[in-house]
Design a protein around this nucleic acid. Structure first.
Length: 449
RNA sequence: GGGGUCGUAGUGCAGCUCGGUUUAACACGCCUGCCUGUCACGCAGGAGAUCGCGGGUUCAAAUCCCGUCGACCCCGCCA
């Protein structure tokens, strides 16, 4: 290796998306071999990095030694490449190509790959998850997590402008947090601890602590053996809790503004790319979102000829939710619905009840295009009422006494919601399975990778 | 926990109903060779499958029967 080439290899890396600014310059790029078209006397390779792809070319006569190296390359090998960036209108891939001067294999890729990453037919998701690190190299999958990053940033921007405090609640708990979900038990010295299924108790504690408004983005764990395309045993929950509210209406009016802001940011920054890669137009919703009480919803569904499963007359099943969203879309041209005022029977003990109707809670779910993405409510903050409601639900007070205590010394009226981040991604990108929008999926049958 | 569908090369699938011309086909990927402008490159050749596992019926089983294991999807539960 001559002195000049060595120096080339030490130059700063250029992202492939920036190559058009380096026309006629010697440039270094780093990425993966996406395809090799070796014509013998002339060789073409396509190199991909996180920002794009580019074709590189070598005429064998120019550098036979290098040509031999290229002849032995395998798909997805990680390489460093130096060459001259040239304009060439014949090249379909962006009209530019790199004339190779040097190529260094950083990490050879075993051949064959478990599957053809860029083939026409994808293997089943379950198989691809076995090779998640390869699957995530596909630009579409990469985009999912770029979008997720901006979603979380936009959420935080909105909260922080609005004076929220971020909390990090413990994931090891001494008692269930009573969301109705089942629990993972873990040995904890001589005791048993539970993995948090929700930060519910602690975000309410923050209200008692005078934090005014809080949010948390963090993991939650559900031990339900749920075999569906929209459940996992560990997922990222987005939680909000707000003090000094008058009713759950205050929570809903916060959430719709917050969602509108997030979707606006996504549209501005990724709208085109999302449309190109997923075929979905990102729509920024009008506010307020339609609000429909459970009672009205059931009436509408009955009128539409849909009968709910007999054992569950007070709640909607997923089919009912989808149908209701379809109805609202047709009638009000809106993709979101707040479903409000759920009956006591299907809500946890800490949801506040209407003073005018003790059978209904001051609660809501938010449905987006047929999928439930939020559950929220005003919380019961009066100690005696709360304890009474817990007893009515058949709970023992001792294990939750620490929680009940939060309401003994001047806890303000408050409410909040939990929001499913992966479910938002599913709807936003029209992806039918949570596993695909989860970096590393965890489910009843999946503890690896 | 209840129900449904499905297990055939690395991947995606055909064949299974009606057992035997099946030496289990096809596509992508992979390997070898050829090709100086490819870009879903092309051309010629090649390797790769104890048909999920166990048992049974039969002269004969990928195919029929019984059992078993696994995965996925729907319901329930929930974000």
């Amino acid at each position: 290796m001559g002195r000049k080439l060595k120096k080339d290899m030490l130059m700063k890396r250029t992202e492939i998306s920036q190559l058009k600014l380096n026309i006629n310059n010697s440039t270094k790029i780093q990425g993966w071999i996406q395809s090799i078209r070796d014509k013998g006397k002339i060789q073409f390779i396509v190199i991909r990095d996180h920002s794009g792809t580019v074709q590189a070319i070598l005429e064998r006569a120019e550098n036979p030694g290098l040509a031999d190296v290229i002849a032995k390359l395998t798909s997805e090998t990680a390489v460093t490449v130096v060459g001259k960036v040239c304009e060439n209108p014949h090249v379909k891939m962006g009209g530019i190509e790199i004339q190779l001067k040097e190529l260094h294999v950083e990490n050879h890729s075993e051949s064959p790959l478990p599957y053809d990453l860029f083939g026409k037919i994808k293997p089943e998701l379950d198989f691809r998850i076995n090779w998640r690190y390869l699957d995530l190299r596909i630009p579409e999958n990469n985009l999912i997590f770029k979008v997720q990053t901006l979603i979380e940033m936009s959420m935080r921007e909105f909260w922080i402008k609005d004076g929220f405090i971020e909390i990090h609640s413990p994931k090891l708990m001494g008692t269930p947090s009573e969301s109705g979900a089942e629990l993972f038990k873990v040995p904890y010295f001589e005791k048993t601890a539970y993995l948090a299924q929700s930060p519910q108790f602690y975000k309410q504690m923050a209200m008692a602590a005078g934090f005014n408004k809080v949010f948390e983005i963090g993991p939650v764990f559900r031990a339900n053996p749920s075999f569906t395309s929209r459940h996992d045993t560990e997922f990222t929950s987005v939680d909000v809790e707000i003090s000094w509210i008058d009713s759950h209406e205050d929570i809903m009016s916060f959430e719709e503004k917050w969602i509108k802001y997030i979707l606006l940011k996504i549209k501005e920054n990724f709208g085109k790319e999302i449309f190109a890669k997923f075929g979905v137009e990102v729509e920024v919703p009008d506010i307020p979102f339609p609000r429909i009480s459970m009672k009205e919803a059931i009436k509408i569904l009955q009128k539409e000829g849909y009968s709910l499963p007999t054992e569950n007359k007070e709640d909607l099943d997923p089919n009912g939710e989808r149908l209701l969203c379809k109805f609202i879309k047709e009638k009000y041209n809106h993709d979101f619905i707040f479903l409000t005022d759920y009956p006591v029977s299907v809500r946890p003990f800490y949801h506040m009840r209407h003073s005018s109707n003790s059978l209904l809670t001051k609660s809501f779910d938010l449905l987006w295009k047929g999928l439930e993405i939020t559950t929220g409510a005003q919380r019961e903050h009066r100690y005696k009422v709360l304890a009474q409601q817990a007893l009515e639900k058949g709970l023992h007070l001792e294990p939750i006494q620490f929680y009940l205590d939060f309401f003994k010394h001047g806890c303000p009226p408050h409410g909040g919601f939990g929001f499913g981040l992966t479910r938002m991604l599913m709807i936003l990108l029209n992806i039918k399975n949570v596993r695909e929008v989860t970096f590393i999926y965890r489910g009843p049958n999946r503890l690896f990778p």
